[in-house]
Nucleic acid binder design. Structure first.
Lengths: 196, 196, 196, 196
DNA sequence: TCTTAACCGAGACGGTACGTCCAGTCTTGTA
DNA sequence: TACAAGACTGGACGTACCGTCTCGGTTAAGA
């Protein structure tokens, strides 16, 4: 990706487009290299040349196709509010069009290290990075004495949302994000963040 | 009752045994109906007859093969301590032999509703049920005024562990269970549960 | 071939028929397993199951499709005449519809031991066997003192015909068979066999 | 002449060398344009530029690599002896290092007219031409009244050897060349040429 | 000396076919 | 009649090459 040897932009665009179409129409499980190549009018080798695994192609197709996976982490000075905003943004993404796809990819990456890397890099790392930065600012203030490390806080906040996406996706809504945000805020001793 | 299935008992046992062996030796992704049938000395039809999907077979093989997936939820009267004990037990299961398998199954059930049901029933529901009962007892006490509903608490507690299993399995350890337990306890206002 | 495990006669008939059609229409070089399977409406595996190599399939298709490859070796008591009759029969076969196919197969068997065996068994051995028997009778008579062994005689008789098929197929005709038969007869001292 | 091809000389040499190596090491069937280009450090286009077909390349590589394919036809005045010498020389070539290669090429030329031409020109024509000249001398003598035309004689002599190369290469030896030479001599009425 | 066009290596491109694995269904013969 | 065995059609895998087609980067010719 971003490889300077890349020659035929049109072939690759066709691949991503066809892959995205198949994902949209028949689900990510229906994506096969063979099928994408056929739909894109492209040789299989061309796909194998530029994507290391089926999963990497899926991630690419999702990310390239949409900017909607973006999560903004803002700093309003109120950590609890910022946390809530972020979790609501996450909920919106995972309950949106790409929710089932994200769940499938998260599942599929359990068996595909290439996909794991691609998915981490494209989906998780940006948000984790941003929120880590936000936490750094927060730690500069007082009242963070008993806090665990960043990753624990991140998993405490994100974990419930993704877990529910995977196990009971029908129960995902913004209220859940509010609840989780409130609970995490209270766990961190941000008392004013208590819901209501 | 004159159960016509009686004759199949040994065939089914052989299937489960072979499936478990393949999972153990080569991972769950290496399990195919064809391969299990061959290893079990069983006709493919026999597998299709008794299991609705490949995933259901995987769950059955895991559950039947081992009682280790059991999580006991006890009531010592100290909710925070019980929570911690439960999460440690969960961590032990998901960092144990079956961890990768559980992760794979959780992933695979994203594309297989039969597997979702089987997995829920075999893995999640028992623990959720037990802990729901434990929470019912707790709610009978005072100091639970601001609590969210059971499912939110459950996902807040379980979510971080399973999420980390799926995304950064190398960072799972008992300390993480302790941290999460402490944070959840604090979020629920069980102040004495704060770690340290 | 002749395997008692064989189940679906219709699938195999379809394979042979399609293979024969492709050979006839587009030449033996155009035969591919994939193409035959497609044309026959058969899974590739079914072909791989019953034929060890592409070449064996070609031979089977040719032999199964036609009885014309048969060469009768008769014993009129006149060895020279019988030889001539046989060579004429050979010429008719190799200048007929299947000539180019036979040439291709003879070529292809240079790189495919399975094909070599199949071709030998189906094409060469029957004639060689018959003519060997004819020679045995002849050797029982007098005047065979200086004769070389059977195989040398066979190659002396057949060799020129097949060699010309491979190298200058346009020059094959019955006259050539007559000439070769006459020369071989003279080489064997069957003076009355001299042409004219 | 200002030959623009001059610069390509080294590339062409590398191609022939690599092709010969592959033929030697892994057999002619293992030669592919792609593989030769890779081994020779040459662009595929360069091969397509200078050789019309894979077969032409094979012939070139064989001929260029070795002068051993040469057959000398001498005129000692004794036609039978000269014939025997020639057939022995042929046997030496086709039982030598290049035997299987020659057989494969003879086979492959059944499907490749370009190869047929190249092979004829490089392998058969020189010997046929020389021996045709030798026969012309012989015909100037007496005792050739009943002879068939040159090509028939040539095929009668060469055919058995090449045919055996293709069909039963393990049975090729000098004795066979002697036998064939003797029989052909007798067929032509060169009585003194009879073996023994 | 400086273009400039042919030729070079490299390898991407759309394709076809390979031989294998497995899915899910269907068939045969045994106990 | 349930079973093992495995054949069936079919789809996909990942690889090897095909022959064509750009790419830049040397040459070596004539301007």
């Amino acid at each position: 990706m971003g490889d300077p040897r890349r020659r035929s932009a049109s072939a690759q665009a066709a691949v991503l487009r066809s892959c995205a179409e198949i994902m949209r129409d028949r689900g990510p499980a229906a994506v096969s290299i063979e099928g994408v190549a056929r739909a894109a009018g492209v040789g299989k080798q061309t796909i194998y040349r530029w994507w290391p695994s089926r999963g990497a192609l899926l991630v690419d197709a999702m990310v390239a196709g949409r900017g909607e996976v973006e999560i903004d982490v803002v700093d309003t000075g109120d950590l609890a509010a910022d946390l809530r905003a972020m979790l609501v943004a996450v909920i919106r993404v995972i309950t949106g069009e790409h929710g089932p796809l994200l769940a499938s990819l998260l599942g599929e990456m359990q068996q595909d290290v290439g996909l794991r890397a691609a998915f981490d890099e494209a989906i998780f790392e940006p948000v984790r990075g941003s929120y880590r930065a936000r936490l750094r600012t927060a730690r500069a203030s007082s009242g963070t004495a008993g806090w665990p490390d960043d990753d624990t806080i991140l998993d405490l906040a994100f974990g419930p949302l993704w877990f529910r996406l995977l196990t009971r996706p029908g129960h995902l809504d913004e209220g859940f994000a509010y609840d989780v945000a409130g609970l995490v805020a209270r766990a961190l001793g941000l008392e004013d963040a208590a819901r209501g």
